[in-house]
Design a protein around this nucleic acid. Structure first.
Length: 389
RNA sequence: UCCGGCGUAGCUCAAUGGUAGAGCGGCUCCCUGUUAAGGAGAUGGUUCCAGGUUCGAGUCCUGGCGCCGGAG
């Protein structure tokens, strides 16, 4: 159940509430990544300190564990997570890209200028058929398709689940994207038909690569099906995300929540929100935290750098996160990062707590601005201070 | 005092007499539905000093200087 509370006058941004079996999500909201039903770097008890409203786990990566489970627990993933809170699962469709082309060519879903030079598009570990996808990885061969993905996601027990799709590579051409999109559309129907549980919200996924005609076609088609929500997936060129949203959003039903899959840099958050996105997830807060990059309102800092060695300031002055409000010094966090493996884990935990809080707080401020009707003013003020560097 | 060992990049150490390297640190950059608790790159040297042997010395010889260990 999704209700829109308020619409921004100058942009397509909307303020809403998405109700799930495990509570409400105030939107727009950043969904934190918990691939293996754990937010990497922090413990279950930490999650409540970070303003996190929802997390997203991954069907492919929970596959083995869920098959071993015999408990028939309807809230299996919540038990794994250690929290009763809104949880999503991704269908495994992204792994068709990330474990196939992405892994083979060491390319991310956002194409760098360098990667544009790649000529032959290989998917060595992946074979895609009408029924689904064969993964050959680490000496194992396994098959995942729309029916199985839904069956697994129903067992995993998330509150929101995704249809099984194919995330194409940013280098795939129009002809391939057309073929892949049509197949993803057929899988979308299959996923809806395969569902047995009625207490999970199912999101269909719009694909179509970087092609306007395909994106519009996909938005109309996925939007016309009986999904409770819409996901927008795929890979983009560097500046094509905003363009894609411009194509897709006008063709989606107004009343359904929209989730932008795997996008979440600070600039992207604003772009997504003002283009009418209600939810998005991204590994940036958690992964970059583990790599020592801490986000602040003036931009990111790399806590591992030598200049923070004797720095006894908090990460960000005035930050209300559990790390900064305990007056934990930058120098201390840096020292943990530079110490033994065990100490590094402690440092990564603090960094993760800070980053998650930072992004969740940013969204909280954006929601407050939308509520006041002053989103644009808030954004201008924000970017006066914020420099990506 | 004597004997032995060692002096090479910021640090710890490599380098049969033949273009002085590595790891770590420092520096710069990267990370977008996590096979990622990381990745990429650049920089970095009077080889303790002074002589000598040699076509050629970090390496061999002589003499200093410094540190470590042992003996008195």
């Amino acid at each position: 159940m999704f209700s829109i509370i308020k619409r921004d006058k100058k942009t397509k941004a909307r303020l809403g509430i998405l109700s799930t079996r495990h509570g409400d999500i105030r939107t727009p909201s950043y969904v934190m990544v918990a691939t293996h039903a754990r937010i990497k770097g922090i413990g279950p008890a930490d999650i409540s300190k970070t303003k996190t409203q929802a997390v997203i786990a991954n069907t492919y990566h929970l596959w083995d564990r869920i098959l071993k489970d015999r408990t028939k627990n309807k809230n299996w993933v919540h038990e794994q997570l250690g929290r009763k809170m809104p949880v999503m699962t991704d269908s495994g469709g992204f792994q068709v890209f990330s474990l196939g082309f992405g892994h083979e060519n060491k390319v991310g879903k956002i194409l760098s200028d360098n990667a544009r030079k790649i000529r032959n598009i290989r998917r060595k570990n992946i074979r895609i058929t009408e029924k689904g996808v064969y993964f050959t990885l680490d000496g194992r061969k396994r098959f995942l398709g729309p029916e199985l993905s839904i069956r697994l996601q129903e067992k995993i027990g998330a509150d929101m689940i995704f249809a099984f799709d194919e995330c194409t590579s940013p280098l795939d051409n129009l002809a391939y994207n057309k073929k892949a999109m049509a197949r993803t559309h057929r899988w979308a129907r299959t996923c809806l038909a395969a569902r047995k549980r009625t207490d999970q919200l199912m999101f269909g996924i719009v694909q179509g690569g970087t092609y306007r005609s395909l994106r519009i076609q996909s938005a109309r088609f996925i939007g016309s099906l009986a999904f409770e929500g819409i996901g927008i997936g795929g890979s983009f060129g560097k500046d094509e995300m905003v363009k894609t949203l411009g194509w897709v959003i006008p063709h989606l039903p107004e009343e359904k929540p929209r989730h932008l899959l795997g996008i979440g840099r600070v600039e992207d958050v604003f772009h997504a929100v003002e283009n009418g996105i209600d939810l998005f997830d991204c590994v940036i807060p958690t992964r970059e935290a583990r790599h020592g990059r801490l986000w602040t309102k003036t931009g990111p800092i790399d806590i591992r750098k030598g200049k923070y060695g004797n720095d006894n300031h908090v990460i960000e002055k005035g930050c209300g996160c559990p790390v900064c409000s305990k007056r934990t010094a930058r120098g201390y966090i840096r020292a943990l990062f530079k110490d033994s493996a065990t100490k590094r884990l402690a440092g990564q935990r603090l960094a993760t707590l800070h980053n998650i809080w930072f992004f969740n707080n940013l969204l909280e401020e954006i929601r407050a601005a939308l509520s006041r009707g002053s989103y644009t003013a808030y954004k201008h003020k924000f970017f006066k201070k914020f420099k990506r560097r």
